[in-house]
Structures are given as C-alpha cells and as structure tokens.
C-alpha cells in the first residue's frame, strides 16, 4: 500500500483547510502512516462480490411535503456571527 508522504500530508491539510506547522506535518505523517497501515489490513479481504453499506437504516424515500416552516430572525441568524456587516456574515477577501 502507498505510504503517506509529507507532501501528501501537505496536500490533505490544504484540502481540509488546516494550517500545520512543520513539526505537526512530521508528526502527522508518521501517525497517519501507522494508522493507515493498520487500516490497510482490510485491503487483504476479497470484497469483489460484496456491496458497500453506507446506511444501516434500510429506509428509502424519506421525503417531506413542500411546506414552509418558520425562519430565524436576522438577529438570531447572526447571533453567533464572528463578524457581521449590513445584515450579512462578513468574511475576508476571497481572492
């Protein structure tokens, strides 16, 4: 199995939006490699004829009628906002 490299860790950290220090990158590289090696055990199983299970609940077609429910007020919606402006959630520049 592929062994996770520091470069992989950097790529994954960017995908996951986590700033890591160099030290953390080293530590995670080692730990993730160890965990993945253990988890990789499952690759030994022949599962060609086995369907995946993403839900144990054997439910289908859980739908709700197209009806309107009460909304939050703008004050409630923004009550936890780290930063707000003009009734919206303010964020730093995007690009």
């Amino acid at each position: 199995m592929t062994v996770i490299s520091k470069k992989d860790v950097e790529h994954v950290a960017l995908l996951a939006r986590l700033a890591l220090t160099d030290e953390e990158k080293e530590t995670f590289t080692g730990q993730l490699a160890q965990i993945l090696e253990h988890a990789g055990k499952i690759q030994a199983l022949d599962t060609t004829a086995v369907p995946p299970t993403s839900h144990v609940a054997s439910l289908t077609n859980v739908l709700r009628p197209d009806e309107i429910r009460p909304c939050l007020t703008s004050e409630e919606a923004l009550s936890n906002a780290p930063k707000q402006e003009d009734g919206g959630f303010a964020v730093p520049k995007i690009v």
């Binding site: 592929t2 499952i42 690759q43 599962t47 369907p51 995946p52």
Partner: peptide
Amino acid sequence: LSAGYYDAYYGQAQKVRTL
C-alpha cells in the same frame, strides 16, 4: 476520501461494513 484512494480505503471499508 481523496481522489485515487477512495476505492482502496473508504469504498473497501463500506464493503467490510457489509461483511
């Protein structure tokens, strides 16, 4: 979940779950 590893890890784990 990332591209290239999904089948080997997540997909396979979901099958083990069936087993």
